[in-house]
Computed example of a mutant assay.
Amino acid sequence: MQNPSTPAYRIPEPVARVLGRLPRYPGSVLFVTGLNLVLARHLHPDTLHRLEGRSLRIHVADAGLRFDYTWRDGAFRAARHDVAEPDLTFRADAWDFHCLLQRREDPDTLFFSRRLVIEGDTELGLMVKNTLDSIDMAVFHPKAILRDLLAGQRHRLRFR
């Protein structure tokens, strides 16, 4: 019988061992590319100001993946947090991150069931969590992403 606090799916251990050996930085570059394409334009300027220079990490525990990044000079940037711990880390299994993005699970529910761990600066963690809660998840739908990218391309072409 499955414990209700246990995710419905976990990355298989052999796959996690392989993923955990991948170098972090290239993965972080890909991760921030997605953040910049999809998320950055939907964040309030006050939020971005508060993120300036702060080090952040997404840790996908069951996959052994870590994505280190920061907001600097108007964009998310890949970072290397090898020397010091980041200001803020969100840690969960892949399934739980998926459920958060799909709004199938509430972050507070995952947090209190210990499936989402937030480490570091508490105030920064609450600000990031509340900001993500306030974003309409429809912006992550592939059609919306493609529409936004095409609109951005037309805008750049028009003003060159």
Rank of each mutant, 00 (worst) to 15 (best):
Q2A: 11
N3H: 11
V15W: 07
V18D: 06
R21I: 05
G27C: 04
S28V: 00
L30I: 02
L35H: 01
V38P: 02
V38I: 15
L39C: 13
R41A: 15
H42G: 11
H42K: 15
L43G: 10
L43M: 14
T47R: 11
T47P: 08
R50H: 13
L51T: 02
E52C: 09
G64S: 04
G64D: 05
F67E: 07
D68N: 10
T70L: 08
W71N: 12
W71G: 08
A78C: 15
A79T: 08
E85G: 10
P86H: 08
D87K: 08
L88K: 01
L88G: 05
A94R: 04
F97K: 00
C99M: 09
R104Q: 08
E105A: 03
E105D: 07
D108N: 08
D108H: 03
T109A: 14
T109K: 10
F112N: 04
R115H: 01
I118Y: 00
E123A: 12
E123P: 03
L124C: 00
K129P: 06
N130W: 10
L132H: 01
D133R: 12
S134G: 15
S134Q: 14
F140S: 03
A144L: 00
A144G: 02
A151N: 05
A151G: 06
R154E: 15
R154V: 04
H155Q: 14
R156T: 15
R158N: 14
